[in-house]
Design a protein around this nucleic acid. Structure first.
Lengths: 193, 193
DNA sequence: TAAGTAATCAAACATAGTGTTCGGAAACGT
DNA sequence: ACGTTTCCGAACACTATGTTTGATTACTTA
């Protein structure tokens, strides 16, 4: 197999920019962050930034994709224990716990909507697949898109609350809260649909 | 009583700017909107804008405060029917239904977080007061701030879903969905806390 | 370790938006 | 019709964006 080495400078520049963006987000929020802030903090030339990324959204997205890939590794590693919607949420709480700084910057209120929108869509998709069969049985049931949307956004709002408030509850506790809040309503709807 | 007339020009300028902002938000979103966009659309001089508002946030806030005052009128008018958390949510769905365009611009995904943050805090406050007594009884109960936060943000996410998707469900239907999703979990927690 | 390649940098530039100031013109209320 | 207030437009300094250039630096590989 070909040694696919990436030029050390590229690696370093990208890391510097990623880290600088995280720091700026935590300081003043993603919306208020400017490319200028980032390159100043990273000590990287202006033209160098634009050689790597189109804009700050692109930079954030690149970092998020990396984080998400790590999450999926974690998810697969724990797949034995963490199946179903409540296992998926637990995995995400756990991964967020192990990467608090990054999650706070990307999935906190300061982080804008890029990561949150992605997660929302991911969860909605997963839930739609997962609940499809059971909802298919019912005729005039509860609107499935609202159900999926609710389960997903409830998770997200708990996650961001947890991150923004630097809450000391464990990932497992947060997932328990999440289940206690959401599961009863979902069960009622699945039964009576 | 003193006739408290406001100069017609002031009234007109403010209205033009408000409406222009709504239009721009619906077109490209609040974050992307610029003061330049607004004054171009409103056909108002640059210095005139700054004579009335500090920036686009200020302009949005001013419009939101007006809308919110109208909501509170509606709420008081319906107070007989709409008591408790689920009555409050119904009132808000109803008011949103009667002012869809404004609500979509301010409380939709395109509208930024100014209005949503305000509503979130308002609801959380209301719920904290309203649930305080019942939660006080329990000792090691469910964290009340998480409970309030969840009830409020579930409402908000349903509202924005409704607005963003131009859903044709009625305000009453939306409130039913909201109750079905959220009430069972809340009741479980209040009983077993 | 030397040679060639590739990334970085600073500087300059055009563009766009921000927020303020000013005097003259227009619209307003009484 | 008068005096007051608002509006306008032009100018200005400032900050940030996104691109281009050629010289410099640092990396890879042979």
């Amino acid at each position: 197999m070909p040694t696919k080495t990436v030029d050390r400078r590229i690696e370093r520049t990208r890391q510097l920019l990623q880290e600088a963006l995280i720091a700026v987000i935590l300081e003043k929020g993603f919306e208020a962050a400017t490319v200028q802030d980032v390159i100043d903090r990273a000590n990287v030339g202006r033209s160098t930034f634009y050689a790597h990324f189109q804009d700050k959204e692109d930079l954030l997205l690149s970092g998020f994709e990396h984080l998400w890939a790590e999450f999926e590794k974690h998810l697969n590693a724990a797949s034995a224990n963490n199946e179903g919607p409540w296992g998926l949420s637990l995995s995400m709480f756990q991964h967020a716990e192990s990467q608090r700084r990054l999650y706070k910057a990307m999935a906190g209120k300061q982080g804008g909507n890029i990561a949150l929108t992605y997660i929302q869509k991911y969860l909605s998709g997963y839930l739609t697949d997962h609940l499809k069969q059971q909802l298919a049985k019912r005729k005039k049931g509860f609107p499935p898109e609202i159900l999926s949307y609710h389960i997903a956004s409830s998770f997200i709002s708990l996650l961001t609350w947890w991150l923004d408030n630097d809450s000391t509850y464990s990932a497992e506790q947060m997932n328990d809260f999440y289940r206690q809040l959401v599961e009863p309503g979902v069960n009622m709807i699945m039964q009576n649909g």
